[in-house]
Design a protein around this nucleic acid. Structure first.
Lengths: 196, 196, 196, 196
DNA sequence: TATGAATGAGTATTCATTCAT
DNA sequence: GATGAATGAATACTCATTCAT
């Protein structure tokens, strides 16, 4: 009993989310109308407002999902290439993200500089997710933890991610002050120094 | 060199710029209409398009002016408090900017994370301005210059400013991940490490 | 006579009526959606249409009930304060209504100028209700009945109630052309003259 | 200098007013969209908002004009059929209005019970208009003026007009409690009594 | 140069009603 | 009887830009 209806509802929501993501990437959220979204999702206009408060609410959901996805992949990547040095593991994560945005400029443009601490933060804090629990464990086991409280370490990571987001946007989207490939050594250098 | 006329034209442009700045700060550029701008500037609608290509062009000008202003003040502040250590002079500049945004959240909100390397960059490169020529001279005279090419040093500074802008926005506007006062030690620590 | 079921149905209807009345008073019928009504009544959307043809039907019912209620109270009041003069008894009823609306502007606003002869009229005509039968008996026994047919007397009363509704609305809601307290003497004077 | 542009502007406004009046009469203000109004007026959507704050503002203007027009005609009619008795002159005005609404039910429906004291009142008070100045003079010269202050007399007239509006609406539109022709004697009787 | 009237495309959101379960 | 998900028509209003004067 029961599943059918719930399932159909979930499908509609997913359809909306999917269509919106595509259109936001193609034309930007500002230039995307609710009309287009529902048309592409094959859903009635009113249905949209059954699942989302307004266009911004939907945008938020889309961005959240994208960020979560990227971060999860980044962490998995780090797990697969793990090495003994904590600092290098962080660089690994940053590098994954940089490479991701190099391949997917559209997403970077959508996220603008807003990449994701909302997400990271929430995940780190809630720790509902075993992936992040592991990351936290790694953090706390790192040599850095000797000189820093957990809170300080979070702030440090926060700064690193903000820096990463800003530099990606500036260099990949605007080639400012140079291409990302020319910025990478300096960026990673900065990350390493910050974690000393 | 028909002074009178030129002067009147300049006044209109300034008036437009001034009104726009006020309104952008009060309500954000998105919620400010060209109509309101010209009304406040006491200028006819059509006149607007004699001086600016479109609303975005105007926004750009407003932001440029604000950034230039802040940076100039920051540099002057640094000149007045100069000390022998190059790194600490950079921290001085950053600190001035942070304190400025603490006092003037509205401006920070307007600039968003977009604070201003557009400006700095251009100025540093063009070097039309004696203030910046001095900064460049200082840069090149610093111990850092021994291990870094001028270009690398610019990039390093670029990263520092981006980091500063991002952290100001996150912490001052959204108190994320903490208040700016609690973030400051970490931020300045990061800056110092990056310049080692 | 399956009491239980009938009772539950009646409860739903009452609940709908009650919620609607509250909302109509608070926000006006135009600004009240069926959605809100059913939500407040703890009833499913579809259920609404089991009990009422549409929103207007419900509004009609609400207004009817309110008018019936006020008129019943007005008549009871008159019965308690009865005096030998028929004209003064009518003034008593009018005064009760005026005072009621003075206390309850929200209801007056909902009724607008539409106060209620729909109700009175119907009741007087149908005479299903012993209260009104008494009023009619009083009417027919009054000195006025000597010069007027019963029909004329109804019309006269109709006019008096319409006048009362209009003046209440104008003076209580809009203080036009003056406050109700300043209008009262003139209004009651007019009523007395009309009944001469 | 001059006229041409102002004239064109006035024409647009008139066109809007005219189209709106037609549509409001045909379908009611609620069922008339701004779209339809501008289409019929051959004017762009935005132009509408150059001349009127919103649909309600326009409705207000339309109603004002109609009321002014009817009242002016009523007064002129009275002037043409003037007789020595003040009371009968008032009845003349009321009768003109009743007959007008008998012929033009659409307008009555549009006005609903809201006929027009806004207008009368304003006109009487402002007295910018010689027609109304005459009416006021007549009022003050009438025998009634001996027992009543000017203010009381205005209130009395106000009540008479409200009664007239209510009874017209009820009897002409809804035949409640009877046709207007059957109500007329009673209505005029009431007016005469009220002015005694 | 300067004006400001005119434009009309563009969009988010609401809501009464239905109907499959 | 009861539900509540789905519908999609309907609508007011904004605003950047142009162009005749």
């Amino acid at each position: 009993m029961g599943g059918r209806l719930e399932q159909q509802k979930e499908e509609k929501k997913q359809s909306l989310l999917q269509s919106a993501r595509e259109l936001f990437l193609e034309k930007g959220p500002g230039k995307t109308s609710v009309d287009e979204i529902v048309r592409r999702a094959n859903v009635a206009k009113g249905t949209f407002y059954l699942y989302f408060k307004d266009k911004n609410d939907l945008l938020q959901s889309v961005v959240d999902r994208i960020c979560t996805h990227i971060l999860r992949d980044a962490y998995e990547y780090e797990q697969r290439h793990k090495n003994p040095d904590f600092v290098e593991n962080v660089v690994l994560i940053i590098d994954y993200i940089v490479e991701y945005f190099k391949r997917d400029k559209l997403t970077l443009r959508l996220l603008e500089r807003n990449f994701s601490w909302p997400m990271v933060e929430r995940n780190l804090t809630l720790q509902t997710d075993s992936l992040w629990q592991d990351l936290v464990r790694d953090l706390e086991a790192s040599p850095l933890a000797r000189n820093h409280s957990p809170e300080e370490m979070f702030k440090l990571l926060f700064m690193i991610f903000e820096l990463c987001g800003s530099i990606c946007y500036a260099s990949i989207i605007e080639e400012r002050p140079d291409t990302i490939d020319n910025m990478k050594p300096m960026l990673y250098g900065a990350v390493r120094k910050m974690l000393q």
